[in-house]
Design a binder for these strands. Structure first.
Length: 225
DNA sequence: GCGACAG
DNA sequence: ATCTTGTCGC
């Protein structure tokens, strides 16, 4: 069981990120695409009712069939602040992950890992706390710069913070907007992109994210009525 | 100081 | 993230 302490404020949250970033492991390639299990996590909110619901959905990486799923409901404990998303999402996400009956395998989350002002986005934070291999697949480029990748599935360009490649803009389907892939923990960038392509076989977003998104939304509606 | 800014 | 109808396209 992983414990999580919510920081008292933004300054403390940034200090936590600076302290934990030294524990990120970047020299492992990560699991091969199409093998083992892969788990998507996502969160839905109702700020008015102070409600947060996280979902974790585990798929067979070869078939993309659902193997297991879980949800966790909680209270909103941190506001949305760009750069501090992890503190808002992690408590519920950790609870959902811990409720899974089997090993999650590779974890895919909405948002960034290394592509972060302090190189410690949600995917990196989740990886350090759980020890699991994690990648981040975001729908927006945040503050980073990139050139438009080619039009075909698989085309990509570097996502840049200055002249440092912190992730990639990756086209997962012909003629759709790219997604933004970055390494979280215990995974390489080439492999993170290969994993993303394997999971985004039929749609722009990885199947893991689509399943987790649908599940946490349904669970939130259920919790409201 | 102002704007931009993963979800 | 979330508030939200119809509508264009495969």
């Amino acid at each position: 069981m992983t414990t999580f302490r919510t920081p008292a404020g933004e300054a403390e949250a940034r200090a936590v990120q600076d302290a934990l970033r030294t524990r990120v492991v970047l020299d492992e390639p990560g699991p091969a695409p199409g093998t083992g299990r892969v788990t998507g996590v996502d969160v839905a909110y109702d700020d008015g009712r102070d409600l947060v619901v996280a979902a974790a959905v585990t798929l067979d990486a070869a078939t993309l069939d659902v193997i297991a799923e879980s949800t966790a409901t909680g209270r909103v404990s941190f506001p949305y602040v760009p750069g501090l998303l992890a503190f808002r999402e992690l408590p519920a996400v950790l609870a959902a992950l811990e409720d899974l009956p089997s090993d999650p395998g590779l974890v895919v989350c909405d948002g960034y890992g290394r592509a972060h002002p302090r190189r410690f986005g949600l995917a990196s934070h989740l990886g350090v706390l759980t020890g699991l291999p994690v990648i981040g697949v975001a729908k927006n480029p945040f503050t980073f710069r990139y050139e438009q990748p080619g039009p075909r599935r698989g085309d990509f360009t570097p996502l840049l913070d200055g002249d440092e490649e912190v992730g990639r803009a990756l086209r997962t389907q012909d003629g759709t907007k790219p997604v933004f892939v970055s390494v979280g923990h215990r995974t390489g960038l080439d492999n993170a992109c290969a994993q993303t392509l394997a999971l985004a076989r039929d749609f722009r977003q990885p199947e893991t994210t689509r399943r987790a998104d649908a599940l946490c939304r349904a669970a939130l509606r259920e919790a409201i009525g």
